[in-house]
């Protein structure tokens, strides 16, 4: 499965970068994410509840920042396991100046591979479920950016 999209934040690039580079804020943006442990400057772990159709349960994720160019580019891999299934996600995030001097445009592209029990229902249902999760993540990120901007750099 491939997902991509873009979003514009009403905040300068350094603020957005700080937020997306910080595991604590990223963890807050992800729905039902808990047990965050930052294991190194470029890796963190945690778990998230996943539920699609009849298959529901908890996934444990390992995140690894594979590549970064501060302020403009981030490549993040996530490897999740649980309920007899696997999810492997490669995400590329690019930041660029937005329409106004204080705006940042973020483009993202994610490639997800689902395995095991979840894969069986992937074709029909997973797309929708993943779409909703991704939307939630970016809504939450926008909110966090607003809050971060309000709190000052």
């Amino acid at each position: 499965m491939e997902f991509q999209g873009n979003v514009e934040f009403a905040a300068p690039r350094e603020v957005v970068w700080k937020i997306i580079r910080d595991p604590t804020t990223v963890a807050k943006a992800m729905p039902d994410f808990r047990d965050l442990v930052v294991t190194s400057p470029t890796s963190f772990t945690g778990s998230a509840k996943v539920g699609v159709s009849v298959i529901r349960g908890s996934f444990r994720f390992q995140f690894q920042i594979e590549e970064e160019n501060p302020g403009s580019f981030l490549r993040l891999s996530a490897r999740g396991r649980g309920i007899g299934s696997s999810v492997d996600i490669q995400t590329r995030v690019t930041l660029a100046d937005g329409g106004s001097p204080t705006a940042t445009r973020m483009e993202w592209k994610a490639e997800a591979q689902v395995g095991g029990a979840l894969a069986g229902i992937a074709q029909r249902l997973l797309d929708q479920a993943a779409d909703r999760t991704v939307r939630d993540i970016f809504t939450n990120l926008s909110r966090l950016v607003r809050e971060g901007t309000a709190a000052g750099p």
């Binding site: 395995g115 894969a119 069986g120 229902i121 992937a122």
Partner: peptide, 13 residues
């Protein structure tokens, strides 16, 4: 599927 995943993993499929 071409990726080797079983697409009929329960009675829903």
């Amino acid at each position: 599927g071409a990726d080797g995943q079983l697409l009929a993993s329960s009675f829903t499929d």
